[in-house]
Structure formats: structure tokens, C-alpha cells
Amino acid sequence: MSETIINVDSVHKSYLMGKEAVPALRGVSLVVKRGDMVCLMGPSGSGKTTLLNIVGGLDEPGRGHVTIAGMDIVSMGEERLARLRLERIGFVFQTFNLLSNFTALENVEAPMVLLRRLGRKERRARAQALLAAVGLADRVDHYPSELSGGQQQRVAVARALANDPEILIGDEMTGDLDSKTGFEIMQLVRDLNQREGKTVVYVTHDPRMADYADYSVHLLDGQIVAREADPVVSLIGD
């Protein structure tokens, strides 16, 4: 049996909207095993992005406990959390959020520069390898503005993998892409999950994209209402 890498225990979270506190999560508990690919689904305002942000260490719960790789992130300071994210978590955003003045290669290189573990040549080689892995070997010197949406998201995926994280967090990764490109990106992520054993947690509105996950977690009004395992075989290879 695989070890638990993410453990969310009775997490509550509220946002202040004007003078009123609006609950976003109400006692959510979730356990994700290493190597799982989990999809968070639900209508707008259900709390899926809030949960994803808490799982990714970007947000903190109001109440409850969250451990990542055995570390309690609720008690962590901002700097330690940043270090955790840098070393163990990769992010892919809906709007790519690439550095506009950096080439594809440099965007992938940036987290490695921040981590300061690799020398210049090793960084470069790894960034090139990652870009080649996402099918952009011939686009390494292109700026984000010279790449299509799908290509930008591939760069974002490569960047998320730069420091070889254990967890990949995706927030509407395919939201800004057309269906075909969206499927390509999801396939890429699924391959990484299967080939390299990366744990993937992602949010999507699109049920077709949820099919790539090992299982989906459905949220409604800040609570998990269903957890459904979904074989991905039907779509893989299409």
C-alpha cells in the first residue's frame, strides 16, 4: 500500500465578503497517496480551488490540519512554506503565468536558480531535457509571446517539474486552451504521473479532463460530497 503524501483533516476555511464571513470549506478531509492523480470537481463556489490552494501550501486553513509528506504545513512560517513549495511542489496555473521577459528555457530554469542546487550547465541541461520531454525541444529560445497557449502551458508544466517535485498542483490547467490542446496537456501530465510517479492534484470544470484522474473528488458548498474512481483507459490514446 502507497504512503500518504497529502493529508487534509477536517479543514475549515471562510472568506470575509464585506462584513459577512462566507464559508468556503466546511470540515473537509482528504487523503492522497503518493503517485495518485486526483481531480477536484464541483460547481463555482464549491471550494475546490480553496482546497487546492491549501493542499499546495498557497493558502492556510482556518481550522484543521494539513500535512504534506508528513510535515504539518499549518504551523509553518511563510519562508519555510516557500521552501517546501520550491522543493516539493510544482504548480501549473490556468493563465500559465510565465515570465514574459524570459525565454521558455529560462522560465524552466528559474525555479532551479532559486533553489541553487545545480550549477549553470546542469540547470541548462535539465531545462532542455524537460522542455524536450514536453515536446518543445525546438522552442527553447522562444519568449512566451512567441508561443501558442498550448505551448505556454507545456512550458508551465516543464517549469513545474524543474526541481523534481513530488507533487504537481494544477489549477484549471486546460481552462484557457482549446479541447485538443487541453487533452494533450492532460495526457502529458498523466504520463508524468504514471512514468515518474508524481502525485497530481488538479481542479477542473470539464468532466472530460477529470477522466484522466485516478479518482475525482466532488465538492459542493465546501464539503466533499462524492469520491468516484474513474478508469482512464477509455480516453487514453485518443
Binding site: 510565465l98 528559474a110 525555479p111 532559486l114
Partner: peptide
């Protein structure tokens, strides 16, 4: 957005 992303991927405030 760039700053948010850099923070998200773990850039320390000092950096």
C-alpha cells in the same frame, strides 16, 4: 502575476 507566480513556486520574500 509574475510576482505571485514567483512566490507560488517558492521564491522567498527576501529574494
Amino acid at each position: 502575476a509574475e510576482i505571485g507566480m514567483l512566490k507560488a513556486v517558492g521564491t522567498p520574500g527576501r529574494q
